[in-house]
Write a protein that binds this DNA or RNA. Structure first.
Length: 275
DNA sequence: ATGCCTTATTTCATAAGA
């Protein structure tokens, strides 16, 4: 199974590039973030053989999962997620090819002294709780919850750089969000659910960055961040034959400010529904 | 070269992104 994640920064603005990229990269499952639409263009992706489950309400946020290996048990939102003040469309889950998949767009946080920062930490805690329930980790989870997915991937734009090596210059981020200990601990807490961080290889240079600001030529100077993450259950992560950042998708006219991350899991599709 | 910000909307300005 080839799984990918991509913050497209508006699926409407990115649709031509998204269609081109799907035809070139041929992922089995694609998790999307910042779709920024209430009505996802499902027909355009259906023409390429993808089913789509989308969750979007307005001009902000929005997530989706496109799959050509089945799309079942769709869940929109997290059971105990906080809102600002209302819940925002930042998480969608589905079962694709036998793997439980979550596409997430973690709140930005803005600045450490902003109310959005606390919202971000609470949201990450709610994400951990939801995943714990589905994985039924020892001593955790809600009694009676459905749970017990053997293979699970949670991926998307986490808006957290897990380590200093995940930003182009740690000194430039002092006092900023995305790198604070509390944010990194909230993300690291997800990994205690026996998940693994699949760090993709860059296709050029040494930095596994997935995001580069549009401004000031940040991309061509490789002044970026790794904030788009792929966390997989240990058994599944062990099947990752390759993982890379498709920087080609960040080039050229009208790109997203994020590049797709692609992971190839070897021989891991449990059951592709006959269609 | 990869190239100097972009998106949707309450649009000739604003909020948000990270």
């Amino acid at each position: 199974m080839r799984l990918a994640t991509w913050n497209v920064n508006s699926v409407t603005a990115r649709l031509p590039r998204l269609v081109d990229w799907l035809q070139r990269a041929e992922p089995d499952v694609l998790c999307l973030q910042e779709t920024k639409v209430a009505e996802f263009p499902v027909a355009e992706l259906a023409a390429l053989g993808y089913e789509v489950a989308a969750y979007g309400l307005n001009r902000w946020n929005g997530v989706a999962i496109a799959s050509r290996v089945g799309l079942a048990d769709v869940t929109r939102g997290l059971p105990e997620e906080p809102g600002f003040p209302d819940p925002e469309p930042r998480a969608i889950g589905a079962t694709c090819g036998g793997v439980r998949v979550w596409s997430v767009y973690v709140p930005n946080g803005r600045t450490p002294d902003s109310p959005h920062y606390g919202y971000k930490l609470h949201w990450l805690a709610a994400l951990r709780k939801a995943l714990a329930d589905e994985l039924r980790a020892p001593g955790e989870g809600t009694p009676g919850s459905a749970g017990a997915y053997a293979d699970l991937v949670v991926t998307g734009d986490f808006n957290v750089a897990p380590a200093d090596s995940d930003v182009w210059d740690p000194a430039a981020f002092v006092g900023s969000t995305h790198v604070t200990p509390a944010e990194r601990e909230a993300v690291a807490a997800l990994l205690t659910l026996d998940l693994r961080d699949i760090v993709p290889r860059p296709l050029k240079g040494d930095n596994p960055f997935t995001y580069w600001d549009y401004r000031a030529g940040m991309f061509h100077q490789d002044m970026g961040m790794r904030i788009d993450l792929v966390f997989a259950t240990a058994g599944l992560a062990g099947q990752a034959a390759d993982a890379y950042i498709d920087r080609e998708a960040r080039k050229g006219k009208a790109p997203s400010d994020h590049a797709p991350v692609v992971v190839d899991f070897a021989a891991r599709i449990a059951a592709i529904p006959e269609k």
